[in-house]
């Protein structure tokens, strides 16, 4: 097991380094950052001053080296707009984003796993069809539409729930639902299909032939196998959730997270912040996927032991 964890961590580190490098060179190749920030209409002198100020006069390798160095001191350069270290700005924003993401993932798993199992067991009755119909419709509704409708109904009309910010637990309800809506629909379908596969396996018959009660057969013998599929789907979907979902939902609910920061930085052309916010999202995706890889090892002994 330790070997599996180490292997996963090494892979994560390599991936992260590759992304950092990619982001650096991609942004440098997209043109002179000075043009981006101040546009035309400054004197040649001012331009040179700015170029030196931001360290853009050095060779690209030196800049790259410095860029890597900025990770070590934890500052990540200065924001063009706020004149504060980027690390400080992003640090303030990470925790709210992470909170929302975790709330979204937990809510998704808590809802879609039981629904998926139920849909598989009752596949031939109205229960199964009802769950699948709801999941189908849910998958078709984009999360910003869901968010807007919730705001209209629960905040403006009924006045039950707050909309802006993250100050109380009540503030979590709508963003969490908006964030996980599509994922719940998808994961319910995947859980159902994974369970259907497992239900027809020989070892399920063995479990029943042992006289085990039905809930043990379904959960212990059935879901323990289906969880492998569910985990891998979750891993793939979370990437999208962390990257795209968060940006939209945070913007709608004015959630003080990375997504909100990213949108603002893009509007204001705050280059260092934008660059680092993208890295932070990538980092989150890598960490979550790494965690799922490790969980995968717990769920499936064949992976942990490095065979098959």
């Amino acid at each position: 097991m330790l070997r599996h964890v180490l292997r996963t961590l090494t892979k994560m580190a390599v991936t992260l380094f590759a992304i950092v490098t990619l982001v650096f060179f991609a942004t440098r190749l997209s043109g002179d950052p000075i043009d981006f920030v101040v546009g035309q209409g400054i004197t040649q002198e001012d331009r040179e001053l700015l170029t030196r100020y931001y360290g853009l006069d050095a060779s690209i390798w030196e800049q790259y080296w410095r860029f890597l160095g900025s990770f070590v001191d934890g500052q990540f350069g200065l924001s063009f707009v706020e004149r504060r270290p980027v690390g400080e700005i992003v640090a303030e924003r990470i925790w709210p984003s992470l909170q929302l993401l975790l709330a979204g993932i937990s809510f998704t798993v808590l809802v879609s796993v039981p629904l998926g199992i139920l849909a598989a067991i009752h596949r031939r009755t109205w229960i199964g069809s009802a769950i699948m119909t709801i999941a189908f419709v849910g998958y078709a509704v984009p999360n910003f539409v869901l968010a807007v409708f919730m705001v209209l109904i629960f905040a403006f009309t009924l006045n039950w729930l707050p909309v802006v910010g993250n100050s109380t637990p009540w503030h979590f309800i709508m963003p969490t639902i908006a964030l996980s809506g599509t994922l719940i629909a998808a994961l319910t379908r995947f859980t159902r299909n994974a369970m259907l596969d497992v239900l027809s396996q020989d070892f399920m018959r063995t479990a029943r032939a042992k006289g085990l009660p039905e809930h043990t057969v379904i959960l212990k013998h059935g879901f323990s196998n289906a969880s492998i599929t569910v985990l891998s789907v979750l891993g793939l979907q979370i990437a999208g959730l962390a990257a795209a979902g968060n940006v939209v939902v945070e913007a709608i609910f004015a959630w003080p997270g990375i997504g909100d920061l990213l949108v603002n930085a893009a509007i204001l052309r705050d280059f260092p912040v934008l660059q680092f916010a993208v890295l932070a999202v990538a980092f989150a995706v890598i960490v979550v996927n790494g965690a799922i890889d490790i969980a995968y090892g717990y769920a499936d002994p064949r992976i942990r032991l490095g065979s098959a």
Binding site: Q201, D202, F203, R205, T206, A207, A209, K210, K220, H221, S224, N225, I228, A299, D300, P301, R302
Partner: peptide
Amino acid sequence: SMVFQEPMTSLNPVLT
């Protein structure tokens, strides 16, 4: 009790 034909698939792969 019963013993089945396929020992490869009649045991649960993820339980000890």
